[in-house]
Amino acid sequence: SGWQYDTQCSLAGVGIEMGDWQEVWDENTGCYYYWNTQTNEVTWELPQYLATQVQGLQHYQP
């Protein structure tokens, strides 16, 4: 899939279920990364769990 979410945008106002994931701001890069509080996994790309929800939002315009 060529769909890419801009990680400089916060998910805070989007209104999706974050589940075990937390969004963390990284000052050095000026982007958010994502931290799974259960598994301690850290990812710079939007986790599939969140990406599926964001893509499903009608009002979200990339």
Rank of each mutant, 00 (worst) to 15 (best):
1 S>F: 04
1 S>A: 13
1 S>D: 14
1 S>H: 00
1 S>Q: 02
1 S>P: 01
1 S>N: 10
2 G>D: 15
2 G>W: 07
2 G>T: 15
2 G>L: 12
3 W>Y: 13
3 W>I: 08
3 W>G: 06
3 W>T: 15
3 W>P: 09
3 W>Q: 15
4 Q>F: 15
4 Q>R: 14
4 Q>T: 15
4 Q>H: 14
5 Y>E: 08
5 Y>M: 13
6 D>Q: 01
6 D>C: 05
6 D>E: 09
6 D>N: 12
7 T>L: 04
7 T>F: 04
7 T>E: 04
7 T>H: 06
7 T>V: 07
7 T>A: 13
8 Q>D: 03
8 Q>V: 08
8 Q>G: 14
9 C>G: 11
9 C>R: 12
10 S>F: 01
10 S>P: 08
10 S>W: 00
10 S>Q: 03
10 S>I: 03
10 S>G: 09
11 L>W: 05
11 L>P: 02
11 L>Q: 00
11 L>M: 02
12 A>Y: 12
12 A>S: 11
12 A>T: 04
12 A>V: 11
12 A>C: 08
12 A>H: 08
13 G>I: 04
13 G>T: 12
13 G>V: 04
13 G>R: 08
13 G>S: 09
13 G>M: 09
14 V>P: 01
15 G>C: 08
15 G>Q: 14
15 G>Y: 02
15 G>D: 14
15 G>F: 02
15 G>T: 10
16 I>W: 02
16 I>K: 03
16 I>E: 03
16 I>R: 01
16 I>Q: 02
16 I>V: 13
16 I>S: 03
17 E>P: 02
17 E>R: 10
18 M>N: 00
18 M>F: 06
18 M>A: 01
18 M>H: 04
18 M>L: 06
18 M>V: 02
19 G>I: 01
19 G>T: 01
19 G>L: 03
19 G>S: 04
19 G>Y: 00
19 G>N: 02
20 D>S: 06
20 D>Q: 06
20 D>M: 06
21 W>P: 01
21 W>V: 00
21 W>Q: 01
22 Q>D: 05
22 Q>H: 02
22 Q>C: 04
22 Q>N: 12
22 Q>A: 10
22 Q>M: 08
22 Q>R: 13
23 E>M: 00
23 E>R: 02
23 E>L: 02
23 E>H: 04
23 E>W: 00
23 E>C: 00
23 E>F: 03
24 V>A: 04
25 W>C: 07
25 W>P: 05
25 W>D: 07
25 W>V: 05
26 D>V: 05
26 D>H: 05
26 D>G: 05
26 D>E: 09
27 E>S: 08
27 E>W: 02
28 N>H: 07
28 N>I: 15
28 N>L: 07
28 N>C: 12
29 T>H: 12
29 T>K: 15
29 T>W: 05
29 T>P: 09
29 T>F: 11
29 T>V: 10
29 T>C: 11
30 G>Q: 13
30 G>Y: 03
31 C>I: 05
31 C>M: 10
31 C>P: 01
31 C>N: 14
31 C>L: 08
32 Y>W: 03
32 Y>C: 03
32 Y>M: 03
32 Y>A: 03
33 Y>N: 06
33 Y>R: 08
33 Y>P: 02
33 Y>F: 06
34 Y>V: 02
34 Y>H: 00
34 Y>R: 02
34 Y>K: 01
34 Y>C: 00
35 W>S: 13
35 W>H: 15
35 W>E: 15
35 W>L: 10
35 W>G: 06
35 W>P: 00
35 W>R: 15
36 N>K: 02
36 N>G: 02
36 N>W: 00
36 N>D: 02
37 T>D: 09
37 T>Q: 13
37 T>P: 07
37 T>W: 06
37 T>R: 10
37 T>K: 14
38 Q>W: 08
38 Q>K: 15
38 Q>D: 15
38 Q>E: 11
39 T>M: 05
39 T>L: 04
39 T>D: 09
39 T>Q: 07
40 N>V: 03
40 N>F: 05
40 N>M: 06
40 N>Y: 03
40 N>R: 09
40 N>G: 12
41 E>P: 01
41 E>T: 06
41 E>K: 11
42 V>A: 09
42 V>D: 05
42 V>S: 13
42 V>R: 14
42 V>Y: 04
42 V>G: 11
42 V>H: 11
42 V>Q: 15
42 V>P: 04
42 V>K: 14
43 T>C: 12
43 T>W: 02
43 T>H: 05
43 T>K: 09
43 T>F: 05
44 W>A: 07
44 W>L: 07
44 W>H: 07
44 W>E: 14
44 W>C: 11
45 E>T: 11
45 E>D: 09
45 E>C: 10
45 E>F: 04
45 E>I: 10
45 E>P: 03
46 L>H: 02
46 L>V: 06
47 P>R: 00
47 P>W: 00
47 P>M: 01
47 P>S: 00
47 P>N: 05
47 P>K: 06
48 Q>S: 12
48 Q>A: 12
48 Q>K: 14
48 Q>W: 04
48 Q>I: 07
49 Y>F: 13
49 Y>Q: 14
49 Y>G: 09
49 Y>K: 08
50 L>W: 03
50 L>Y: 01
50 L>E: 03
51 A>G: 05
51 A>K: 12
52 T>M: 07
52 T>L: 11
52 T>K: 15
52 T>C: 07
52 T>N: 12
53 Q>C: 01
53 Q>P: 02
53 Q>D: 06
53 Q>S: 01
53 Q>I: 02
53 Q>R: 08
53 Q>A: 04
53 Q>F: 02
53 Q>E: 02
53 Q>W: 02
54 V>E: 01
54 V>N: 03
54 V>F: 08
54 V>L: 10
54 V>Q: 01
54 V>I: 14
54 V>D: 02
55 Q>M: 10
55 Q>C: 14
55 Q>A: 12
55 Q>N: 08
55 Q>R: 10
55 Q>Y: 04
55 Q>P: 02
56 G>C: 07
56 G>V: 07
56 G>Y: 04
57 L>T: 11
57 L>N: 08
57 L>M: 09
57 L>P: 11
58 Q>P: 08
58 Q>R: 07
58 Q>K: 14
58 Q>T: 09
58 Q>L: 05
58 Q>Y: 07
58 Q>S: 10
59 H>N: 13
59 H>G: 12
59 H>F: 11
60 Y>F: 14
60 Y>A: 14
60 Y>Q: 14
60 Y>K: 13
61 Q>V: 09
61 Q>N: 10
61 Q>F: 07
61 Q>W: 04
61 Q>T: 15
61 Q>P: 08
62 P>Q: 07
62 P>K: 15
62 P>V: 04
62 P>E: 04
62 P>Y: 09
62 P>D: 05
